[in-house]
Nucleic acid binder design. Sequence first.
DNA 1: ATGTCC
Length: 411
Amino acid sequence: MKHEEYDVMNVEGGSHVKMWTKGVPVEDAAKKQLTNTAKMPFIYKHIAVMPDVHLGKGSTIGSVIPTLGAIIPAAVGVDIGCGMMAAKTTLTANDLPDNLGPLRSAIERAIPHGMSPKTRGFKGRDKGSWETPPTPVDAAWLQLKDEFDLVCLKTPKLKNTNNYRHLGTLGSGNHFIEICLDELNFVWFMLHSGSRGVGNAIGTHFIELAKQDMRTHFINLPDQDLAYLPEGTNHYDDYVEAVSWAQKFARMNREVMMQNLVAAVRTIITKPFQTHVEAVNCHHNYVQKEHHFGKDVLITRKGAVSAKAGELGIIPGSMGAKSFIVRGKGNADSFHSCSHGAGRTMSRTQAKKQFTIADQVKATEGVECRKDADVIDEIPMAYKDIDAVMVAQRDLVEVVHTLKQIVCVKG
DNA sequence: ATGTCC
């Protein structure tokens, strides 16, 4: 008899919750949130929970929510299409300079990062968006522009975002750009970012519309952020179109950044090298139509990665910890999914209270990165043990490469 | 996560 690698939580009046969390801690508050989501009448089969699960807004981060006939915009959230991209190069550790500082500076100069204050003249400059977007941005925007005009008709505030000037920019928070070494000392480029201002505008617009629709139809919910859009309504159709465009923007955002990252590295390392020897570009915060157990359904992955049989994905560790390039095993019960990281064990506020700059310096030894007060919340000790997380999902993915970061740029 | 016109 096959040994099941997941635990099952039964929810009265709701669907099952299958949890790949053996050997990793799960907060009670996260279980409560999963129970609320499982009670929604349009959940298809069951909810799948990844080992990095933790409390989110409305529903947990680190979960896969299959739905039939409705969509929950707050489950996708505001950073629509957030995800990872990684590319292997022909460079090895020996090709890198001893001092990695100039390499980090070159990346910081080449790729806008941090917030984009809309007010012009704020502290004299706008770090987070392009003043004059370079050629790769124009080429990418040409593929997004026509649909952008259509989505603007349904999401008016989209016109007032940075949109074009945000394409190929990092953002802030836990978005980052890294140079890593794999187990054979090959150099990889890796980055984490999403759909910037446009996904935020689309996400907040439809989350608000869904909440309004619930009030109009007197539908009571255990949590306002489980407000949904039923299939067959205009709002549903408009959201599906808009969310899909934001996801396309996010994927291209990462591609453009990767192009500019490679160009920036070439200004420092003059030895010729090839890139994209292996390459992965995956969302971990998105919704799309997929086929599971014989039906076309909507799969919302909120902090989870697609892991079809043979499909490559990226599971980043925290700053100073290992990251993994993984290959999916096509596990049907997980709706072909895996975790999107280690998962937090404490809030950012708690981490800043509990740890010092000295702790962060020690934890990120050997990594060329910021070590100031503003990045203490990213300290590895605020995250679950990545090795335990990988063991808990061994029937979902296998590890192809183990990466260790040596340069990290944060927004 | 975004951006400070909520």
